[in-house]
Design a protein around this nucleic acid. Structure first.
Length: 401
DNA sequence: AGGTATTCACATGAAACTATTCTCTGAGTTAGG
DNA sequence: TAACTCAGAGAATAGTTTCATGTGAATACCTGT
């Protein structure tokens, strides 16, 4: 495309009317003014956190519910309002929101505390200090003045999975080291049985209060979608049955509102790119396909080399239509490594990589016993057949094959 | 036939190792007084 | 003498290896009928 054509294209693009009024309303970080169907939880949350306004330490709180059930949204909603009032009335409350899944930010004990220090304006090194040193810095800093801290730990289950539950014990124990300030913890988890395998001491102190977010049902999702669609799209853009279909798809999963909104947004984008004016039911199907494909390709693209090698080995067996096991993959994997000049990992490690690929949802790896013939993982693909060629291409490219 | 014991092919766990990035510390070096 | 430089020790972290132990059920092997 030459310079002129490109210019024409952009000018043409601008003159075309968009079907979107405000696309932000469908994006995942959008915070609506009201959170529908969560009155009970919000009320509950507010009453648990309210004592903080009188400088009394609120109970530690534990929140759980599936993804896309509005946990984070509600917590942010309440905490924002709380801190607004605190600011007005000059009450020294400080609220942190930390997402424990964020790579290189808050996914280990050290980083979590370091990040809290930074929120307080103390610059701390990313590495090099002992962990208890960082605790000391933190304690000293916040204890200088009387303060009430509310620490919101989102996806806390991921943190504990990775680093063990000692960290929570340390956090709950912080209060005994603080003379002036106090710390309350608010844990948010997607995993409903997360607390079961927690140290009992931690468990009892962390979940002094609990709030459960049940999934949205299809009807509720419809209402939510309608509300947002009204903000996001111009009049008469959303076709018959589109909202219903979107809601039904998301409800089929587990009432994931985030997913429903994403579907609607992507469908809108597809229609707009195609020059259409109205979102139809079939666009939702396209959107679902596209989001799924994008997700898979994105995951694969960002995997390290050894994961790609393993995955490539797995794909090699997939068209043969026979059940496939860890041993087969490892044999093939070793060959590929030799061919590409990579250093083959041990079977132990490859076994873990396969398990991780399973977690990522790219493959299904079920541990089965073949009786006399041992125990192994039986592996099959978890991605739609029509994306397979693309994935293989991507892998070959990434591995110079 | 029915019951037990073996056995396979890995899974799963724990610890230890490697390499990288970063801080802190103290010895040695340098430049200015 | 104060400021600066630079090597070495020690941490955190990610990814991996080494060693050890666990495991479910198809088969092999008995046993008494």
């Amino acid at each position: 495309m030459g310079e002129k054509e490109l210019k024409d294209f952009f000018v043409g693009y601008l003159s075309k009317s968009s079907i979107f009024k405000d696309k932000k309303a469908l994006q995942s970080n959008y915070t609506p003014k009201t959170v529908p169907y969560r009155d009970e939880q919000i009320e509950n949350l507010a009453s648990i956190l309210a004592p903080s306004l009188r400088m009394e330490k609120p109970s530690n709180l534990f929140i759980y519910g599936k993804t896309g059930s509005g946990k984070t949204l509600c917590v942010k909603h309440v905490s924002e309002n709380l801190s607004k009032i605190a600011e007005e009335k000059k009450i020294p409350i400080k609220i942190f929101y930390l997402n424990c899944k964020m790579k290189r930010v808050a996914d280990t004990e050290y980083r979590l505390v370091a990040q809290m220090c930074r929120e307080f304006g103390v610059e701390v090194p990313a590495t090099g200090l002992p962990t208890d040193e960082i605790y000391k810095i933190f304690v000293n800093e916040i204890d200088k003045q009387k303060k009430l801290l509310l620490v919101i730990l989102d996806e806390i289950d991921q943190l504990v999975l990775k680093t063990g539950d000692e960290i929570l014990y340390n956090m709950t124990r912080l209060n005994s080291e603080l003379k002036n300030s106090e710390v309350s913890l608010i844990g948010i988890s997607n995993d409903l049985v997360f607390t079961d395998n927690l140290d009992p001491r931690v468990k009892s102190s962390l979940s002094e209060e609990e709030i459960v977010f049940s999934p949205y049902d299809a009807i509720q999702l419809q209402k939510i979608l309608k509300q947002r669609a009204k903000l996001a799209f111009k009049e008469e853009v959303v076709g018959e049955g589109v909202i219903e279909k979107c809601a039904a798809y998301a409800a089929r999963e587990h009432g994931d509102a985030r997913r429903a909104l994403e579907l609607l947004r992507v469908a809108g984008e597809l229609v707009e790119r195609g020059g259409g004016k109205i979102i139809k039911e079939e666009n939702i199907d396209q959107a679902e396909e596209k989001t799924e494909r994008d997700r898979v390709l994105d995951i694969i693209n960002t995997q390290p080399k050894q994961f790609k090698l393993t995955l490539y080995s797995i794909f090699n067996f997939m068209d043969k239509g026979i059940p496939i096991f860890t041993g087969d993959i490892y044999d093939f994997y070793k060959d590929v490594c030799i061919k590409t000049g990579a250093k083959p990992l041990t079977q132990r490690r490859v076994s873990d990589i396969i398990a991780e690929l399973d977690m990522l949802g790219i493959i299904n790896a079920k541990v089965i016993s073949k009786g006399r013939y041992g125990r192994t993982r039986q592996i099959c693909l978890a991605i739609p057949q029509n994306t397979v060629p693309k994935v293989v291409d991507l892998l070959k490219e990434g591995l110079n094959l």
